[in-house]
């Protein structure tokens, strides 16, 4: 299964950000996201500063900007939604190109856009510089229940496999002439999903039996003993501190 781990979320590298202990990186990321989310929307300069800090971290992490931008496409549905806000929102109106738009709604669009893009970027940087197993190890060290991190580990490990299984059944059905267009033609799709669930469940049982045979006791052995050093925590605190200070300054001045 070794090859399955190198998925598109993670960019291999040896930068300072890559080498940081996962718990320090996650804590810094979480603190930064909270600070970004609570920055008052009127303080446009603060968001520019947040973006600058993020750009600096992306550079330090040696992540290709195209990788970050491509993955940011995930926020597009909400961007599209954000542009409808000024049309449906109430309150004071301003006229833009002859169309009456809500002033508060325009601020709402900006608010959703800026925070969605910046918040997602933080997740992308953390996931892009940390192997999935280390992310869950980091979460565990941050006192997230082991059951949650273990389920997440298994889920990610088998996700591509199960998704592929679903895709293959779909291809097989299409090859036999099944081309549904309406909801009432969905029965074979649902039957296939049911069959894949049964297979997934049975796979889970087999995997567990195999793990027991290899001496599984309920916890995963600690392979990654690299914990965050004092320097790691300091780096994380610096980044999160700058973002938080910006947010605080923005809150005070607006």
């Amino acid at each position: 299964m070794g090859a399955g781990h190198a998925h598109a979320l993670y960019q291999h590298g040896h930068s300072t950000v890559h080498r940081m202990g996962p718990e320090a990186k996650l804590a810094a990321g979480f603190a930064s996201v909270v600070a970004i989310a609570t920055t008052p929307r009127e303080a446009v300069w603060a968001f520019a500063l947040h973006a600058a800090v993020l750009a600096a971290v992306v550079t330090a992490a040696e992540l290709p900007p195209r990788f970050v931008l491509r993955r940011l496409a995930i926020v597009l549905p909400f961007v599209a939604f954000a542009f409808t806000i000024p049309f449906v929102a109430g309150g004071e109106e301003v006229t833009v190109l002859g169309v009456g738009l809500s002033r508060d709604g325009l601020w709402g669009t900006w608010n959703v856009l800026a925070k969605a893009v910046l918040g997602a970027s933080v997740s992308i940087v953390v996931a892009g510089t940390t192997e999935e197993a280390r992310i869950f190890k980091g979460l565990e060290r941050l006192r997230v229940p082991v059951a949650i991190t273990l389920i997440a580990t298994f889920m990610l490990r088998y996700l591509t496999l199960i998704a592929d299984e679903l895709r293959r059944t779909r291809v097989a059905m299409r090859a036999r002439g099944y081309a549904p267009r309406w909801l009432w033609e969905a029965r074979p799709v649902a039957s296939a999903a049911g069959a894949v669930f049964v297979r997934s469940y049975e796979r889970g049982e087999r995997v567990h039996a195999a793990m027991l045979a290899r001496g599984f006791t309920g916890t995963m052995p600690e392979l990654d003993t690299r914990t965050a050093t004092r320097a790691d925590w300091l780096r994380g605190a610096t980044v999160a501190g700058v973002v938080a200070a910006t947010a605080l300054a923005a809150a005070v001045t607006t």
Binding site: M155, A163, S200
Partner: peptide
């Protein structure tokens, strides 16, 4: 635990289906 994990993968995959 592995069972819940693989079921989670199924739910995740079903959301992409």
């Amino acid at each position: 635990v592995p069972l819940a994990g693989i079921s989670a993968a199924f739910i995740f995959a079903a959301q992409m289906f």
